[in-house]
Amino acid sequence: MHSQNKTVVKSLVILNLFRKHSTLTLNEIVRLSELPKTSAHRMVGSLTEMGFLTKDNQGSYSLGLLFLEFGEIVSERLNLRKIAKPYMEDLRDKVNEAVNLTIRDGDEALYVEKIDTDHPVRLFTKIGRRSPLYTGACSRIILAYMEDQEREAYVERTTLESIGIKTITSKSKLKEVLHQSRLNGYTISYSELENNTVSIAAPIFNYAGQIAGGLSVAGPETRFTEDKIKELTQQVKETAYRISKELGFTESNV
């Protein structure tokens, strides 16, 4: 592990050089990084093979297109949070329940924004929290709208562990719920991440019609009556659609 960490550090030392220099030769990388030439050569070779660096015909290196892809992902996520926040505040004012925004981060959902309610009894969820994609409405709505092959692969490789008293731990049941969520355009969870709570989530799409995140309202089960759930579901779906439109989504993208 210690050796692996040293390798990562050396790689980052090299990559950081390109923050000030658009192109560098191997000799320049060795001089500026103060790494042994053999180590620098090995690191540069690995970074080039992985797409982090690219080499031109003159033998000079520059940052690879992979960084452009990462930059676009970061930009999209930041834009989503910025665009969604006023809509989330408006939704909270209408329903007086906590509103959450999640994005996918690998096999997890990451909570990137939350607008809280002034109810004395409320569900506590902090920004930065992570949850498995299979459980909780705001996580599972992302899973429901992932590409079919990717979604199936996730379900097959994932162990469905119980977190709340009603966490779905059956893969066949999960597949049914995911299918129904796509038909309905929303999903509801009861006591899946936190006991005695309810969450209702709808998908947010980007300009390409791909799932960009999940929007949910959540709170104690005692306040989520049948009539209120119908109202909240409609409000969440409408708000998620408005955010999607801001991201450039149209029905023709689907």
Rank of each mutant, 00 (worst) to 15 (best):
I188R: 05
V30F: 09
D116P: 01
S189E: 06
K230C: 07
N5Q: 13
Y190N: 15
R151T: 00
T225Q: 03
T225W: 02
L53V: 06
T239Y: 08
S181G: 09
A84F: 01
R140W: 02
T158G: 11
Y87P: 00
I168G: 06
S139W: 00
R157T: 08
S22R: 14
V9F: 15
T125A: 13
S199A: 15
A201S: 13
R81V: 08
V74H: 13
S39E: 15
R77V: 06
V217W: 11
H119A: 15
G106E: 07
M88Q: 05
L68N: 13
L101Q: 00
A40K: 03
L143S: 02
N16L: 10
A208F: 08
D105P: 00
M146C: 11
L35R: 01
I142L: 13
S11E: 14
K173M: 13
R42M: 09
V155D: 03
P132R: 04
L232W: 11
I103P: 01
E238Y: 12
L26H: 03
D90C: 12
G248T: 02
K166Y: 12
E76Y: 03
G164A: 03
H179A: 14
E76L: 07
A84Q: 02
T197G: 10
N253W: 07
L12P: 03
T48D: 10
H179L: 06
A40P: 00
F67N: 06
H119K: 15
R151F: 03
G59K: 05
I141L: 03
L133W: 06
E226M: 07
V13C: 08
E97I: 02
Y87D: 10
G214H: 05
C138L: 04
L133F: 07
R130M: 11
L215E: 08
L35I: 00
Y207V: 07
I229G: 12
T167R: 06
T48S: 12
Q234S: 14
I141W: 00
I29Q: 08
M88P: 02
T117Q: 09
D90Y: 06
G45L: 08
E226Y: 07
K171D: 09
H21S: 04
A137R: 04
R182C: 10
R242P: 00
K82Q: 14
V95L: 15
L110S: 08
D56G: 09
Y145I: 08
G64L: 08
G213C: 11
G128R: 01
P220G: 05
R31Y: 14
N206V: 07
V74I: 15
V121R: 12
E246V: 04
E246N: 04
Y186Q: 05
E238F: 08
K237Y: 02
G164L: 09
L232R: 07
M88V: 04
V44R: 02
S75H: 10
Y154D: 04
L17M: 11
T250D: 14
T54L: 03
L232M: 10
R122D: 05
L26F: 04
E176T: 13
T169L: 05
A153Y: 12
Y154K: 07
I243P: 02
L193N: 08
V121S: 06
D107G: 11
V177H: 03
T187F: 06
N195F: 09
R223D: 14
F249K: 02
S189F: 04
S216W: 03
S162V: 10
E192R: 05
S216P: 06
E49H: 15
